[in-house]
Design a protein around this nucleic acid. Structure first.
Lengths: 325, 325
DNA sequence: TCAAAAGTGTTATCCTTACACCCATGT
DNA sequence: ACATGGGTGTAAGGATAACACTTTTGA
């Protein structure tokens, strides 16, 4: 039922927070691996902890001092060749990726917790931030490079249901296809296969090595951690719409604009103010506290809090953002 | 990053098909473990196969002769105590659960493939089949037993965000809450914790042993395989609504009624004929072949086929069944 | 008084639900 | 002719998307 040929199981955690307007990811930038950041990870020891989740909470607490609230399993990655560095022929590592949400621990600014620190996640995925409109990097580098990739024949590749052109169209919203902010992992995988991220070259992908002179996109991470982060972002963007997870990232009281900014930070797109407010109102996810905040600069804003009761009232309480929020 | 204390990784597959009106699950009923059925499972050998998915396809093919089409990772289960039998203190097994869809291989009837065979999945979850109305077992046994469980205090349990009463209301649609056909795994977990499934007693749960005289619900499975099946059903019921996975279970040509019966089989509820047809029409998921089938008994039915092009046209092509289909 | 952000009102359109009736075949 | 399942039309209600304007504060 299993093999004992040196398989190890590690838990990797994408620990997400939002600071002001920026989504942040907790990274441990170990100096032994150059400037590259990595996700916090730890072993799974079945003798100490009965479940993955308990084990995860334990070592995150020990390593960073953070008590995470919401935790969710993302995916288990077992690809040979996408965890080890080139030439490394140590034991095979299976990594179980987790998503965890925490409120920003420090009053303001990016906190440093136990050797790890929060970093804005769009450094790793600059093409995913559409809040100020379509990112320039798309038309300046990504799409031209991918167009070239799509034009070349796809030999030596696993058979896929869709051809390169179709994948490009669907994932990157080329040619009348809409941009779908949830397809974060699909886009990252296309870039990996096209050899346009540093990880692909490190893993020794043929397609990547052939294109060694081309630029690489976004900051890279250790092992397959950027892939896990892409999965985390995709999951969170999707989950927002049918579960009230956004409130795991808000403080207990907030203004509607703060809520909107947080949702925009995560989903990476700009939302329509009036429609967003009506949406929030209709879903009955929040209630006014009666307080007024005057720190916002203009007219003072009413404060709200999450109505925990909705979880018991409605089957899928989330912010079902349509195409215009 | 990992431990070497005898951890093994196994892949378990929920291989689903639909035969006429019944959803079927491939089970291997090993005679060494009494009458209990189990899901097919196999080892993951990183030296032979680069990814889990490739490994899975390989041993499913070898074990059952089936070439599975659609494959999707479900969840990785690592709970100590939910895989081993009581007294068993062998190595800890981490099982990566997969969902696979296949078309019924035999023309009709349940096929036997390489020692394994298909069984109707509602044997294991009789409370999940609402096609002929609300299942009797709910009011006759499940809800009374769970009401009693909810009334007792929850000590010695991991702290949960919701109390027993709220979980019962939300998962089982008690007391004005709607029944949500996607909450298959949540319901199974409630029954497990309440000690009302055989697996809980086998695992030596305190709550379960105290209630040894009460009946157990549904047919049980080996290890934690019923939990994996519950996860598979839940995922498939959800996925139907935004991806055209249903066509992985249909033959290449079918009538609209056959399509409706298949969707009903999976989602476990009865759908409104006219609305279902309009839905299918609007989504442009199918096109008429021009053929007519006269085998249905009444008026001959037009045949349709899946329009593969929709995948390239629309972002989320699925049957977005509302509350009335 | 002006900048900056909060907050509101209204309409066209589409999708969902719900309703009841007619059609083509085999026996 | 009648049973059986196939197939259709239409209207009410609600949600979404798109539009521009008023209000309240601090500087």
């Amino acid at each position: 039922m299993g093999l004992r040929t040196g398989i190890e199981i590690g838990l990797s955690a994408a620990i997400v927070s939002v600071d002001k307007d920026d989504p942040q990811i907790l990274v441990a930038s170990d100096k032994t691996d150059g400037p590259r950041a990595g996700l916090p990870f730890g072993p799974f020891d079945p003798l100490t902890h009965h479940t993955f989740e308990i084990g995860l909470r334990a070592w995150v607490k020990a390593q960073t001092g953070l008590a995470v609230g919401y935790v969710e399993q993302l995916y288990t990655f077992g690809d040979r060749g996408r965890h080890a560095r080139p030439g490394d022929s140590g034991p095979h590592v299976v990594s179980v990726g987790y998503l965890a949400l925490v409120r920003m621990p420090d009053p303001d600014g990016v906190a440093a917790v136990g050797g790890a620190g929060f970093e804005p996640w769009y450094r790793f995925f600059p093409w995913e931030d559409w809040r100020a409109g379509r990112p320039e990097i798309l038309d300046l580098s990504i799409l031209p490079l991918l167009a070239e990739w799509a034009a070349r024949p796809a030999h030596d590749e696993p058979v896929r249901p869709l051809g390169r052109r179709e994948r490009l169209r669907l994932c990157f919203g080329v040619d009348r296809s809409p941009w779908d902010e949830e397809k974060v992992i699909d886009r990252y995988e296309v870039l990996y296969e096209a050899g346009l991220v540093e990880e692909a070259r490190r893993d020794g992908r043929k397609a990547a090595l052939e294109r060694a002179k081309l630029p690489v996109l976004g900051e890279s991470m250790r092992f397959d951690h950027r892939r896990i982060l892409a999965t985390a972002i995709a999951r969170l963007r999707a989950k927002l719409k049918y579960r009230p997870v956004i409130f795991e990232l808000m403080s207990s009281e907030f203004t509607l604009t703060e809520l909107q900014r947080t949702v925009e930070a995560i989903s990476g797109r700009h939302l329509h103010k009036q429609n967003f407010r009506r949406l929030v109102e209709n879903t009955e996810l929040v209630e006014p506290t009666g307080e007024i905040s005057t720190v916002t600069g203009g007219r003072p804003a009413a404060m709200f809090r999450f109505r925990r009761e909705v979880v018991q009232e409605r089957p899928a309480p989330g912010l079902r953002l349509g195409s215009r929020g």
